[in-house]
Design a protein around this nucleic acid. Structure first.
Lengths: 339, 339
DNA sequence: GTGAAAGCGCTAACAA
DNA sequence: TTGTTAGCGCTTTCAC
């Protein structure tokens, strides 16, 4: 069976396609009676407008893109939920693209957005991204872009973040308060502003609360859990091993726990751990995990809302704008025994 | 700056749009020299074809839809990864839709696919879905549909599942082997074939290995963790409470663990637990969690591959076809102390 | 090997 | 209030 088109409805009712089009969009130019007849036939024949004919004509696709490093991560999963909630409410479609932390993927994906495929973009940078031409190219096509979490600081647009500096400071101070004297931090990038902020928070806290201690201990981790575990085993096997660890990304937690187990280091007695994590099983880990819990759903929702605000205006240009939604330190057993 | 179109390239090179179009698609009708000139100009001007003009003309969108109950679940996150890996390789775009387990959402979403928006659909049913007209409507428009995980048994199309019956049987037998005599199973639906299969496996295992025991104990849970916990607290507080629990979905694990803690029931001494779960933190839970781990990534990949196989044929009709990728029982501390 | 022209299904000026 | 017309940017016969 062939699809119903406007033309077919028009022929059936002896009207022009224009009249049908207007009637279906409830235009005031069309008489009530005509609207009713059109509506009736459309529902009876189950008319569904062609998805792309209108997009082509109006140069609007009612579609947004979400560009993420990965999705097997509680933060991004929750963020997608927040984004989808808003998109569905606004009647928009959501294209999803995963960079797997590869800069060249990110470039290729954005390039694809330059010709009408999407009305706007929500994105979180890869850990590799350290140049921004592809982002400027997109902006030059007037396609609004909202960053969330892993933002691009130098680009003038809307950015949704959490209080990374403060959270990291707080996490570090918490470890120091719990008695740690050799705190290490695990990072995944030295380009991402979010990583840098977390490192700064850590460094400032060390400086403020442990003035005469040895310098900072930043460990850069990668994408592969096995390599990370190997790294960790080496570090945790040393004489002067850390007695406190901050994981700046959720997925490093498993490596830390397993490495400690393997080395017979007890958490929190020998090492205390706090992770930036939205993993809902944090309370039932062994021991339960002290987390910096980010407002992932809210950040996704806020990013989408900001984007739609721009899309609903005529000139959809986004001002430089920073929305910061705070994270929360939740103290559990990995830093305080029995908590 | 305005977007580059075929027409502009044509004017620039004193060629017709037809020639440009063919040249860019490397048609044999076009001379090598012309192709070279066209290519050169296109890359120099950074020509990117309009996303929807071609879709409209060719009635192919190079886009697929993924319809999921939710995404904050390791299984679906991993499945998305598998799907995206294939889609990216094939040059397809991926629209994502979440039903949040609501049947009416599912209907509305599928309806939207009836007019060219997508070339094919991958989907996992909601827990509510118990009628299939919306699916038949989609099929009547010749849009290929592949089910994965939560399949629709009555519909003739490709279906990717894991061995739910056997896995559940195995999980139940494992609990019995570990000494459990009152095994309960937590389910989320009495419509889904996947749930029914898991219940059957459980029932058969009980029948086979505990012939003279009290009847099955099936607990239906919902979407809200608090309600579920309340439910569980009641059940686990009873005299004849279960000494073994099977969670047929990952998210119920947290409720189980927390309820046991609250009631001072020790896992695995008082209650043994096995969950259908892909949560990567299973090994570091307290105690580590015995899981039926599903091949989530592989299922997503297989579903996508099956769909693309249909899309690449002329008549893209999918035969009734069942691909079963086995799950794995991974025994850990929640059923065997110290494992 | 290249071009002219029709048209995918819809919308938006502009007429009537 | 309704119709006519001219595209949106591209592909695809069919001429030449």
């Amino acid at each position: 069976m062939d699809n119903i088109t406007l033309k077919m409805l028009a022929k059936e009712l002896n009207l022009s396609t224009a009249a049908i089009s207007k009637a279906l969009r409830d235009s005031h130019e069309i008489s009530f009676e005509t609207k009713r007849r059109v509506q009736e036939l459309a529902t009876r024949l189950n008319y569904i407008p062609n998805a792309y004919a209108g997009s082509l004509r109006r140069k609007k696709s009612k579609t947004i893109a979400v560009v993420l490093p990965e999705v097997a991560d509680s933060f991004f999963s929750l963020a997608i939920n927040g984004i989808e909630a808003v998109a569905e409410e606004k009647g928009y479609h959501v294209l999803i693209y995963l960079t797997h932390e590869h800069f060249d993927r990110e470039q290729a994906i954005l390039k694809n957005f330059q010709n009408g495929r999407v009305d706007g973009v929500l994105m979180s940078l890869t850990a590799e991204t350290d140049s921004y031409q592809h982002i400027c190219d997109l902006s030059s096509k007037q396609i609004p872009l909202v960053f969330f979490d892993r933002i691009c600081e130098v680009k003038d647009t809307a950015k949704i973040t959490t209080n990374d500096f403060e959270s990291s400071y707080l996490a570090t101070k918490h470890l120091i308060d719990c008695g740690c004297r050799r705190v290490a931090i695990l990072s995944i990038s030295n380009h991402l502003s979010i990583s840098n902020k977390r490192l700064e928070g850590y460094e400032q806290a060390l400086k403020a609360h442990l003035p005469d201690q040895p310098p900072v201990n930043v460990v850069f981790c990668g994408n592969d859990p096995d390599t990370n575990s190997l790294f960790l085993k080496k570090i945790m096997g040393e004489e002067e091993r850390p007695d406190g660890i901050i994981a700046t990304v959720e997925k490093l937690t498993t490596s830390i726990y397993l490495t400690c187990k393997e080395l017979a280091l007890s958490i929190p007695e020998d090492v205390k751990v706090v992770s930036f994590s939205n993993n809902s099983s944090a309370p039932i880990l062994n021991p339960s995990l002290t987390t910096i819990t980010q407002p992932a759903f809210e950040m996704g929702r806020a990013a989408a809302n900001t984007l739609f605000k721009a899309l609903e205006k005529k000139n959809g240009i986004l001002m430089n704008e920073n929305l910061v939604i705070p994270s929360e330190l939740i103290v559990r057993g990995s830093t305080v025994a029995g908590a």
